[in-house]
């Protein structure tokens, strides 16, 4: 099962990379910069997914006090920090050439930065607590709290007037030509698979470390 999942994820990632860098045409307005879309958006979606997993597993841990939920919650919090950090970085590398600025004080950018900081805080609380049990409990509480930011991040571009453009794919329709949709879909799938594999491996590592 494990080698299969890892192999499938690696294959998906390579196909995604190929589609993103070779197959996808340049955009009529942004040119080659559009290729950053295929790493920025999947990273953001993976961050949402990791945050959701962290929130759910943490809530279950607080309820059931089963260590296995804590392992998953910790993996989710780490990956939420990782992927939201990646989203911020790729967003900046996209914003500088296209918008002309690395950063803007608009709602989407600030709420994403808040998301990143909250998960960093969540991980620090766990590591710095006096005893491990307390650390698990406290970081679970922070993980539940931090998830409140996810819908705010996602809908900030709809609710508020931001520099960041609105969603290209929503219930109102798809504003993405099919040439861009396929690489985006494959890359999103690949990142979610990567998230799943990393979650499973991180949780397994945590259980091994506790057993020891």
């Amino acid at each position: 099962m494990r080698p299969f999942a890892v192999g499938a994820t690696a294959a998906l990632l390579s196909v995604g990379l190929f589609l993103a860098l070779w197959v996808s045409p340049p955009d009529s307005y942004q040119g080659e910069y559009v290729r950053i879309l295929y790493v920025h958006v999947p990273a953001a979606l993976a961050a949402y997914g990791a945050a959701a997993v962290a929130c759910g597993a943490s809530a279950l841990y607080l309820w059931r006090r089963d260590l296995r939920w804590d392992f998953v919650g910790r993996a989710g919090a780490e990956l939420a920090a990782l992927f939201s950090g990646l989203t911020l970085l790729t967003g900046m590398l996209w914003g500088k050439p296209v918008w002309g600025v690395w950063w803007a004080w608009d709602a989407r950018l600030v709420t994403t930065a808040v998301l990143f900081l909250l998960y960093v805080g969540c991980l620090l609380v766990r590591d710095l607590a006096d005893d491990p049990e307390r650390g698990r409990r406290l970081s679970a509480a922070v993980a539940v709290l931090a998830f409140l930011d996810v819908p705010v991040v996602h809908y900030s571009v709809v609710w508020f007037r931001t520099l960041h453009q609105g969603p290209s794919i929503s219930l109102q329709g798809v504003k993405l030509a099919p040439e861009f949709l396929l690489p985006l879909a494959v890359n999103t799938l690949a990142y979610l698979a990567l998230l799943g594999v990393l979650l499973a491996e991180r949780a397994r590592l945590a259980s091994l470390e506790v057993e020891r």
């Binding site: 942004q30 040119g31 559009v34 296209v98 918008w99 290209s168």
Partner: peptide
């Protein structure tokens, strides 16, 4: 300062040279 705000639409180029 002038900051560019682009739309959420992505289309393949029709002209040989994109504005970029």
């Amino acid at each position: 300062s002038v900051v560019v705000k682009h739309s959420e639409e992505y289309t393949p180029p029709r002209s040989p040279l994109p504005p970029a």
